[in-house]
């Protein structure tokens, strides 16, 4: 081997162990899943004993109203939590981007929910939502409002509230970081140009934060599609199928209905949906980098 080619190989050699782990821990299960999705597969069978059924699992899913329901619930859940979290998180960041005493303590308090294990979040909220001795209903009662049957009558709303509570801080800290890195002088120029606080937010701050906000939004969306623990603990998917998001349905299909093939097909569909989102995010960052490169290039050209 010449010295030249050895030098060129070095980075690949360094990456090799990680690539090997990826291959074993990621691509092998995914491949297994894809292969399994084409077979009629009961958990008692090993995969070699299963029968190849082609696209039958997928066809059955597409015709299955329960799957449709679950898919719809997932979409509603993901898009509502992310929209509410974005609005709340960004607004909080805009409000708290200032120098006041005890700000760092406040910020730490604000991001606490994010640090709690999801199962615990689920348990806490199940208690808070409880019909008769839950904190929320007791508070409603104390101010003279009627009790609400949170988990029975408004299950989707309840899980959305819990998720918003847990994940708004994520958007908040990223937005705050974005806000604090904005060029101060551009904001001062806007003040001199006569922009009110709202106009500064609308015309200067938000457009300049947009790159960070878009990546944050896509990250949260990807995450929201995979949510499981909080809902499992809070409602277990019920009542009926009202909060049965895809991740939960996949677990039930595999364990209760003993249809590993169908569960694998469902996982694949979720995976493809997430892939589209991820590719969207990559496309966005690539576009941004290309733009930054172009700008740098023009700058160098003109000195």
């Amino acid at each position: 081997m010449t010295r030249f080619s050895a030098n060129r190989l070095t980075p690949y050699l360094f990456a090799a162990p990680a690539a090997l782990v990826m291959l074993l821990a990621l691509f092998y299960p995914i491949g297994y899943m894809i292969w399994g999705s084409f077979r009629a597969w009961d958990p008692s069978q090993s995969i070699t004993e299963t029968e190849f059924v082609g696209l039958a699992n997928y066809a059955r899913l597409l015709a299955d109203p329960a799957f449709h329901e679950s898919f719809w619930v997932t979409l509603v859940f993901a898009f509502s939590v992310v929209s509410v979290e974005m609005v709340l998180g960004v607004s909080l960041a805009l409000l708290l981007d200032r120098k006041i005493r005890g700000m760092s303590l406040l910020r730490t308090l604000f991001i606490l929910p994010m640090m709690i294990a999801p199962v615990v979040v689920g348990l806490v909220w199940r208690y808070m939502f409880h019909q008769s001795y839950g904190t929320i209903n007791r508070m409603l009662e104390a101010v003279g409002l009627p009790k609400v049957d949170w988990l029975g009558q408004n299950p989707l709303l309840s899980v959305i509230i819990a998720d918003v509570w847990q994940w708004t801080p994520f958007i908040f800290i990223l937005s705050l970081a974005a806000l604090q890195s904005l060029p101060r002088s551009a904001l001062e120029a806007a003040r001199i140009d006569g922009a009110t606080t709202m106009q500064q937010i609308w015309h200067i701050k938000l457009p300049l934060m947009a790159p960070v906000l878009i990546v944050t939004l896509l990250l949260r969306l990807i995450d929201a599609f995979k949510v499981l623990e909080v809902i499992l603990v809070l409602t277990g998917g019920g009542p009926g199928l009202q909060t049965e998001i895809l991740a939960l349905r996949i677990a039930r299909t595999a364990r209760e209905f003993r249809e590993l093939g169908e569960a694998a097909a469902m996982s694949n569909m979720l995976l493809m949906l997430l892939m589209v989102l991820t590719l969207g995010m990559f496309a966005f960052t690539r576009w941004q980098e290309a733009r930054a490169r172009r700008l740098r290039f023009t700058k160098e050209e003109e000195g």
Binding site: P183, S185, A186, A189, I192, G194, H203, P207, L208
Partner: peptide, 26 residues
Amino acid sequence: IAMVFQDYALYPHMNVAKNMSFSLRL
């Protein structure tokens, strides 16, 4: 008043015309 800053403080997301007309548009 109008002010010119040391680092220019232009609005990076607006083109030159939009930068110059920002206060008039407001």
